[in-house]
Design a binder for these strands. Structure first.
Lengths: 185, 185
DNA sequence: TACAATTATATCAGTTTGATATGTTTCCGT
DNA sequence: ACGGAAACATATCAAACTGATATAATTGTA
């Protein structure tokens, strides 16, 4: 029934490095995973409570006298075990939903030009993101030897670059094919 | 609140071509969208009822005397309008979740060889799917002039090929980098 | 000092997943 | 012709996830 809570492992993965608040976990996801994995507060906070209840993380309040709630979470031995177990298990599923492709699939209803516009917007979006990834790549290359983690981070960045480039190339080719079909009529 | 029901448009898109049962809609999604969009029965049947209640589709029972329930749905004028409106609106979001990358991101916890194994499995999976897409491509090229739809179908197939090739290339490069790091230690 | 931005937790309606249940009809081999 | 497997068909559900909103403290800055 239902599906397996993957957010559990994202949270455990980050807590494996350092103690964090829910908010900090969110910023880390946004900064380093966002181009291949997302998670919102609505998933993170409930998952942290779930994890605490089942003993995979422990929490402590860090607000020394202040009024602001600040709940730092730490991974437990059990948590590390659960993380390692999941990491060792075979990869189950990749998940994609491309709205651009859905619209293109039904594209014959629209004018050709509108589809071209959609494609160009898609292209520009990912073309614009490429320099950011390139920046990450350069940064990680520099510090590659400082921690075994950096090589793995680099691999995920290289994935982003490879796939975004594929998006851009495909969009160019698709636009060209649509333009050709325009003149052929 | 919540997010917009996209299944609505998948269903409307297919019904725009022909009258279909929920089951048939599912088979069409699996056959033609599955590598960039998925939907299960648990989403399709409730969406069809919702659509019928709001007048975007109409239904009729096709079981002439037989016992088996067979509900054929047709798109209405209002439904076509809703579909066209959504198609014309700007593309909102692309959505991906790559478990392989999540595991790789936390990969330093595992032995290097285990990460290599995961990558090779990933590579082989998509390498194996490429000939199927190539087959679709050839088929669609042949019948391209028979319907304006076919060009659009072809574009989505080309996307699949481009991206799957990017997966394979990336996996090869990632494996090589990991192997190099093995010998360097 | 006041205003904006950031930090921080929390909740919720609606959507989606992935599995299960249940039964009919068609196809195929013996 | 019979029986079992595969395909057809609808339906439901718990748990996960999205995307938005609410609330408030803290920090930076003009």
């Amino acid at each position: 029934m239902g599906k397996e809570n993957k957010t559990v492992y994202v949270v455990l993965g980050f807590l494996n490095h350092e103690d964090l608040t829910g908010y900090e976990i969110k910023t880390r996801i946004d900064a380093s995973l966002s181009y291949f994995w997302g998670a919102g507060f609505g998933q993170i906070y409930p998952t942290l409570r779930l994890l605490e209840k089942s003993g995979l993380v422990s929490k402590r309040s860090d607000n020394m006298g202040q009024k602001m709630e600040r709940i730092k979470y730490s991974i437990t031995g059990e948590g590390r075990l659960a993380l390692a177990k999941w990491l060792s298990a075979p990869v189950e599923s990749e998940y994609v939903k491309y709205e651009i492709l859905l619209k293109l699939f039904f594209g014959s209803i629209l004018e050709t030009q509108k589809n071209i516009d959609n494609l160009l917007e898609f292209k520009n979006m990912y073309d614009g993101k490429l320099p950011v990834l390139k920046g990450f790549e350069t940064e990680l290359e520099k510090i590659k030897d400082q921690s075994p983690d950096h090589l793995y981070y680099l691999l995920t960045v290289l994935f982003g670059e490879k796939v975004y480039k594929a998006y851009v190339e495909w969009a160019d080719e698709a636009v060209e094919l649509l333009r050709k079909s325009q003149t052929n009529n």
